[in-house]
């Protein structure tokens, strides 16, 4: 258990790849299709290495790479660092690289995607911070190591925060109904459209790391009971995929409304009540 978190952080691209591959199989089966093999993301990875990379300009490509390394570093900081808030702020930074990269080219799809990515940030980050605050209120620590050794079940104290978090996961992982920054049918991948070959691969792999990041947060909600954590992660995974398969894309007005007027008050209410109970009574 001692080196577990570090191992996960280092191997996160590979773990994320497996999660992504598994998700593609599950998604296909939910659509009554056979689906690709489990290792398909890695095949794609190998194929993309061989492709010729067309750079728009060097800064843009660098931002792609920066996005990948920053996401990786974010995960490492989140899992191994002393404070999960650092991880969350680094997460914003990592996305900022993607956004700046998207803005740095003239392509309207890329620029529009970056604008929408900012809206994503606006919706996602407050909830992530409330999750962190909630976990701190329950466990009394900002560190992942301490939260994972907490003997109780944080989810019992934070049910509404958990619900809010699960419902915002589609926005983090860019899944329907909140996949607006990537919206294939409208802006064709958004900020990532102008990347190609090796640099697209960086973005592609960074997405896998996001999977690990999200499910690591889900994992935190069960404290020391890691079996329960696995079960909960699987359940959330299935729920997210079923939701992805049963909704169409909302537009960004609807997403903001949902995130700010439904999810945020929900999570805030939970934390407010918890804080009252902890500190006042």
């Amino acid at each position: 258990m001692a080196w577990m978190l570090e191992t996960i952080a280092i191997l996160s691209p590979i773990i994320g790849g497996f999660i992504y591959g598994f998700e593609r199989v599950v998604k296909a089966r939910m659509q009554n299709r056979q689906g690709p093999p489990l290792l398909q993301p890695f095949y794609d990875f190998i194929k993309l290495v061989e492709k010729r990379a067309i750079q728009v300009h060097s800064f843009h490509s660098m931002m792609g790479l920066a996005f990948f390394f920053a996401t990786w570093f974010t995960l490492a900081a989140f899992l191994c660092g002393p404070n999960i808030l650092v991880g969350l702020f680094l997460h914003i930074l990592a996305l900022a690289f993607l956004i700046i990269g998207g803005f740095s080219v003239l392509s309207p799809y890329s620029v529009m995607g970056s604008l929408r990515e900012i809206i994503h940030l606006m919706c996602v980050e407050p909830i992530l911070i409330l999750v962190a605050v909630g976990l701190f209120l329950v466990t009394g620590s900002w560190s992942v190591r301490d939260i994972l050794s907490y003997s109780g079940l944080p989810i019992l104290y934070l049910p509404l925060v958990f619900i809010a978090f699960v419902l915002i996961i589609p926005a983090i992982l860019k899944k329907s109904p909140f996949d607006i920054s990537e919206a294939h049918q409208e802006i064709i991948g958004g900020p990532e459209i102008e990347y190609s070959g090796f640099f697209y691969e960086a973005i592609y792999t960074a997405k896998w790391i996001e999977y690990v990041f999200v499910f690591a947060i889900v994992f935190l909600f069960t404290g020391v009971h890691w079996w329960l954590g696995l079960a909960l992660s699987l359940l959330v995974f299935l729920f997210i995929n079923a939701l992805d398969n049963s909704t169409c894309r909302a537009n960004f007005h609807q997403m903001i409304k949902f995130a700010w007027f439904v999810l945020l008050p929900l999570a805030a209410l939970n934390i407010f009540v918890l804080a009252l109970w902890r500190y006042v009574i």
Binding site: V26, A28, R29, M30, Q31, N32, R33, Q34, G35, L238, N241, A242, L243, N245, S246, T247
Partner: peptide, 21 residues
């Protein structure tokens, strides 16, 4: 939405309609 949600979960455990190769 709910209908499709249930259908998706049902499909997960049923035989896929497409066959490989």
């Amino acid at each position: 939405m709910l209908k499709m949600f249930i259908e998706s979960l049902k499909n997960l455990f049923s035989e896929p309609a497409t066959l490989p190769g």
